[in-house]
């Protein structure tokens, strides 16, 4: 895993500021041409994330609006799981996707601890769909920030570098400790994510989002592979030789004993 680049792109979402207008959703839809929402059987509802909705707003009780999107983990489980590198972590931070390489195994969807990647199940040529932080548009100079943050009318969600936004988040919490929970979602979850959220209510994340980077759990097993491979090979060859030698000795012993016996017989 590459170490995180110094200037990791990030988004800070402030739940206290969000009015739930979904301008970000529409901004994303327009910029990424995701298509219209439809009530497919494989999603929780039209409002849930889907192949045509890369970001959405969860409505918590009491008019609290929490924006959900790909969190662009510092060490992403999806990218480490991808067997062909169709999903990859760019040096700038966003986790981007190349459909032409993808073989459609959907291991990324299994691996993501936040359950973010979606699939275009209705298509005969399906693809993984998720927020890419408008990496292509920003790199090409078409935009200076993701469509969602530029669409936000109240600056509830802002774009910047991770360090900078972490500072902003801490300042906001320090300035209003009675309003905010003293927790920055995304600072440590799953080893840190590019999407930071501060809030006046608890944000329900999927169960068991760990604090350690998930790719390391796989790597703990995978790094032993060459040793196991060669070890088993050597072991098998050695065992075969050993057991062959045992049989050989036993055979020789039996032969000798038989010869001895016959010699004794002839002596008599």
């Amino acid at each position: 895993m590459k170490p995180a680049a110094k200037h990791h792109w990030a988004i800070l979402t402030d739940v206290t500021k969000c009015i739930g207008c979904e301008s970000c959703v529409e901004g994303c839809r327009g910029a990424n041409h995701t298509g219209r929402d439809q009530p497919w059987t494989w999603q929780n509802g039209v409002r849930d994330l889907s192949a045509s909705r890369w970001t959405t707003i969860d409505r918590l009780p009491g008019n609290h609006y929490v924006r959900r999107q790909c969190r662009h983990c510092v060490s992403p489980a999806c990218a480490s799981a991808c067997p062909v590198g169709a999903l990859k972590k760019t040096p700038e931070g966003p986790v981007v996707y190349d459909a032409s390489i993808c073989m459609g195994c959907r291991y990324c969807m299994m691996a993501c601890p936040f359950q973010i990647p979606r699939y275009s199940w209705d298509s005969a040529i399906p693809a993984v769909r998720k927020c890419v932080l408008c990496h292509d548009r920003i790199e090409s100079g078409e935009a200076r920030e993701p469509a969602c943050t530029s669409a936000c009318p109240v600056d509830a969600t802002i774009f910047g570098t991770r360090e900078e936004l972490l500072k902003v988040a801490k300042q906001r919490i320090a300035a209003n400790p009675n309003v905010y929970r003293s927790h920055i979602w995304g600072e440590h979850e799953a080893g840190g994510t590019g999407i930071l959220t501060i809030s006046d209510v608890d944000i329900p994340l999927p169960n068991t989002v760990p604090t350690d980077p998930l790719p390391e759990r796989t790597w703990a097993a995978l790094r032993t592979v060459p040793f196991v491979f060669l070890g088993v090979g050597a072991g098998m060859v050695g065992l075969r030789w050993l057991l062959g030698r045992r049989d050989q000795l036993r055979l020789a012993e039996e032969k000798a004993r038989a010869a001895e016996a016959s010699a004794e017989k002839s002596e008599e």
Binding site: A81, P83, M103, G104, R106, Y107, I125, P126
Partner: peptide, 23 residues
């Protein structure tokens, strides 16, 4: 099962040694 079976040969040329599925 895989969505784009015509790409099934890709792991041969796109090496991702940190992926369990690659192995």
């Amino acid at each position: 099962d895989i969505g784009r079976p015509w790409n099934i040969w890709r792991p041969m040329f796109f090496w991702q040694h940190h992926s369990a599925l690659f192995e």
